[in-house]
Amino acid sequence: MTDDRVPQVSDPAGATAAPSEKKVNLEWIRNVSVLAGAALLFIVFSVLSSSFYQPANLLDILLQSSINTMIAVGMTLVVMTRGIDLSVGSVVGLSSMIAASLLPQNLLLGIAAGMLVGVVCGLVNGLLIAKLKLPDFIVTLGMLSIYRGFALIYTDGKPIYGIDPIFRAIFAGDLAGIPTPVLLALAIAFLAFLLVRYTALGEQIIAVGGNEEAGRLSGINIDRVKICVYAISGLLASLAGFVLIGRVGAAEPIGGTGFELQAIGAAVIGGASLFGGEGNPLGSLIGALILGALQNGLTLLNVPSFWQLVATGVVVILAVFADQATRKRQ
């Protein structure tokens, strides 16, 4: 077969350059506007409050965003498969309660049990969604209630005080002046980035979200991919729970309530598309930082925390709106 028989996609001069760059541009515009929004946020808060841009406060934002980052990374992977995990907040609560109760016996046992609970919660979500073909939204909404119920039943609603100091040093301590939650969150975001970029599972996640049927007809085990992302989401939620109880110094059965919205918000601001197939764990890090900065700034300006809830909701909906507008154009 010779070249000249091939139908030209467009004129030879334009064909090499034109095709993808416009699409890239659209994504680029989106990314730039997210960063511009972040910059604007930073400038506005810095002007309104002189303590906002102090290094100590910036480090505080990083620290405050670390829990959300960890959950948002898992959420991003789920969203990339065109799914959603609304149960993460309850998984935070349940796994941290289990861990806290076993820590006095043995540090490693507590950590292992907590992580196991997170993974099992995720597996249950994934199995119900993949094998029984139940809608992800309903399954994880139901599980939000069930896992929270278990957390409350476990101690009859009572908190567990006195978290092991070594545990606290690991999950809420400092390493060379940097808080360990920040390091942990960064490491998780980076590992997830590597997963998406350099592993078969990562690509299969994109394929499942991008076109499940094409993936199935190409021999990808769709169920396995879905179960994997929910399990990862559960695991990361349990780690976030460790950071939470480490910082607070106690475990509460209602810990983690409402975290799902924050995580979805961070994922979408970070470029994950609710239409599936697109997203970046490093983006969700940025998304979490933007939400964290917003809350931190509003606190410094003495905006009541009730209004912060409103602001967060507005930002999340705006991000989804921007996502939808961008995809439609494409």
């Binding site: 076109n211 094409a214 197939g277």
Partner: peptide
């Protein structure tokens, strides 16, 4: 488009 390709890839 529906059965063989993942358009975003």
């Amino acid at each position: 488009r529906k059965q063989a390709l993942v358009p975003v890839m």
